[in-house]
């Protein structure tokens, strides 16, 4: 734990225990989403499915990156991950992103993805609102993650024909253009 790191956040008027709970739930959502997106990606097959495989892979790896980026901040603030992974998953900030009943229904699959991304945006908007002007480290981290979640939503929205995302593809799978600076584990080859 960073004693002073926690103290300055407390002095700024934030209930650090509540903030830590939100961060742990957010980390749980990223972790479980990484798991579920692995299943969704594996089932994105056929003429339509192959088309969305690339964005699912980017979202999947970037959500794992979000988990990795959140964990150090949880411990810095005196928090910890649940001892039991089942409790961790049950407490995730967003519901499980189950494979649809018909795994070949690509539209249903995209609906699962977009709802999960929209949930994630709300999670980080909440943390950003709580920490704005008070806890710059958590705020910047949450804002960086939210930037990527917003892009994820836009990709799904584009595939659903709701409108263009205005984005171009990542340079590499799961590049995390906003969150990579928070990652403590260097990327392979860097």
């Amino acid at each position: 734990m960073g004693k002073v790191a926690r103290e300055v956040v407390e002095k700024a008027g934030i209930n650090v225990d509540e903030l830590v709970k939100k961060l742990v739930r957010a980390a749980g959502a990223e972790f479980t989403t990484y798991y579920y997106y692995t299943i969704l990606r594996a089932n994105a097959i056929g003429f339509d499915g192959e088309g969305i495989k690339e964005i699912i892979e980017d979202m999947r790896i970037e959500d794992r990156n979000h988990f990795e980026a959140l964990v150090p901040r949880i411990y810095e603030l005196g928090g910890e991950l649940h001892r039991d992974i089942k409790d961790f998953c049950k407490d995730a900030a967003c519901p499980d992103a189950y494979l649809p009943s018909n795994p070949r229904d690509v539209k249903a699959l995209l609906q699962v993805l977009i709802e999960a991304e929209r949930c994630a945006i709300r999670v980080y908007a909440d943390i950003c609102a709580l920490t704005a002007g008070k806890d710059p480290r958590t705020y910047e981290l949450s804002a960086a993650i939210m930037n990527e979640e917003i892009e994820h939503e836009a990709w799904c929205s584009e595939f659903l024909g709701e409108g263009p995302s205005g984005h171009f593809r990542r340079g590499a799978p799961g590049e995390s253009p906003y969150v990579s600076r928070f990652l403590v584990v260097p990327k392979p080859g860097v």
Partner: peptide, 18 residues
């Protein structure tokens, strides 16, 4: 956990919708 509920019916909207 960011579940969403319909105000008129009280029914869950998300995640039930997916």
């Amino acid at each position: 956990h960011h579940y969403l509920y319909d105000l008129e019916s009280g029914e869950n909207y998300y995640p039930k919708n997916v």
